[in-house]
Amino acid sequence: MDLILILKTIILGIVEGITEWLPISSTGHLILVDEFINLNVSAAFKEMFDVVIQLGAIMAVVVLYFHKLNPLSPKKNRKQKHETMVLWYKVIFAVLPAAVIGILFDDAIHDRFFNPVVVAATLIIYGVLFIVIENHNERSRRRGMDSLSGLTYRMAFIIGVFQVLSLIPGTSRSGATIVGGILIGCSRTVAAEFSFFLGIPVMFGASLLKILKFGLSFTGTELVVLAIGMIVSFLVSIVSIKFLMGYVKRHDFKAFGVYRIILGILVIGYFMFFK
């Protein structure tokens, strides 16, 4: 096993674990990092790897929120179990728009939008949106809904529609859904948590589709690369999620907006002058 290949895989796992949950686009960052770190694997495997590595990240949500998401927990009373099931119904309802669009147009989206130019544009556009929305909330002094139980099916579906935007790389799935949640009146904490929960069926579904498309005939090296990437992204995601939930309780998302704009400009500059 090539040590360099392992090190590159670890770096990609770290990038995935950090950027999946922060509203700065994991897919966009993986595309950009790939410009400098070539895994030296087939194009088909790399396309699958960039999606399936997210399974490690999503398992971090399952572990951290297992009690909250478990409707069969013996520590919950009947009412709490019912509320947990209702939360899952809302998650599934919200997933439908992205699931339908993703299944129907997966290849077209990948062929047309998975490139550095699109990533740079979406990084900047949504960076500006974060700043504009937060400034508006600051002026209006609006306090968002601070309980997941207050999230209606209509609100969940609207957030799910925003999730469709994240099919374009550079947008950020968490960024799009958090923006959607804040716009319809959710607090940052509720918007972030619901975004995490939406990721569970979305990432499992997307990973299953990519694996089936790639086939189950992995080489030994491909299995090791996939396993290392998922394990690293899982461990780093644990830290990232805890950081984000602590951050949003005290700060707004403008810093992420500024980061996205700066990164987008750097990407444009790099591809204009160095490629």
Rank of each mutant, 00 (worst) to 15 (best):
Leu148Ser: 11
Asp2Thr: 14
Asp111Gln: 15
Met230Trp: 01
Leu223Ala: 15
Ser73Gly: 05
Ser42Tyr: 03
Leu12Arg: 02
Ala227Lys: 08
Ile231Val: 15
Leu216His: 08
Ala156Tyr: 01
Gly175Leu: 00
Phe45Asn: 01
Lys242Gln: 13
Val15Gln: 08
Thr177Glu: 11
Gly28Leu: 04
Phe204Ile: 12
Glu20Gly: 05
Ser26Glu: 03
Val52Met: 07
His82Val: 12
Glu193Tyr: 08
Gln54Arg: 09
Ser237Gly: 02
Phe36Gly: 03
Ile241Cys: 08
Thr122Met: 15
Met48Cys: 09
Leu263Trp: 06
Lys81Asn: 14
Ala176Val: 03
Ile37Asn: 03
Phe204Trp: 12
Met145Thr: 13
Asp50Pro: 01
Thr84Leu: 03
Leu208His: 06
Tyr126Ile: 05
Tyr126Ala: 01
Phe253Leu: 15
Thr177Ala: 07
Gly185His: 10
Phe273Lys: 13
Asn40Tyr: 07
Val117Glu: 14
Thr177Gly: 04
Met1Asn: 10
Val248Cys: 03
Ile37Tyr: 07
Asp34Pro: 00
Phe194Cys: 00
Lys46Ile: 10
Arg154Ala: 13
Leu104Cys: 12
Arg173Lys: 10
Gly229Phe: 03
Gly246Gln: 07
Ser140Lys: 15
Met272Arg: 11
Lys249Thr: 13
Ile182Ala: 02
Met230Ser: 09
Phe114Arg: 12
Tyr247His: 08
Leu266Cys: 14
Ala120Tyr: 00
Ser147Gly: 02
Lys213His: 12
His251Lys: 15
Ala98Arg: 02
Arg173Phe: 09
Val61Ala: 05
Leu223Asp: 02
Met85Lys: 14
Ile4Asp: 11
Val61Gly: 04
Tyr126Trp: 11
Tyr247Ile: 10
Asn115Leu: 11
Leu39Tyr: 03
Ser174Cys: 06
Lys254Thr: 11
Asp106Gly: 02
Ala120Trp: 02
Val119Met: 06
Leu208Phe: 13
Leu69Met: 07
Pro74Met: 00
Glu16Trp: 06
Ala108Asn: 11
Phe273Asn: 10
Gly246Tyr: 04
Pro71Trp: 04
Phe66Glu: 01
Ile238Asn: 00
Val267Ser: 00
Phe197Lys: 08
Ala192Ser: 15
Lys79Gln: 13
Cys186Thr: 13
Ala57Tyr: 02
Gly229Leu: 08
Phe271Asp: 04
Ile265Ser: 06
Leu96Trp: 10
Pro97Tyr: 05
Ala99Lys: 06
Leu183Phe: 07
Lys90Thr: 08
Pro71His: 04
Arg78His: 13
Val63Lys: 10
Arg188Gln: 09
Ala192Ile: 05
Ile6Ser: 09
Met230Phe: 07
Thr219Phe: 04
Thr171His: 10
Pro23Tyr: 01
Gly56Phe: 01
Arg142Lys: 14
Phe243Gly: 08
Phe271Arg: 12
Gly205His: 05
Ile200Cys: 09
Val33Ile: 15
Phe253Gly: 05
Thr27Ser: 12
Phe234Ser: 05
Thr219Gln: 06
Ile238Tyr: 09
Tyr65Met: 08
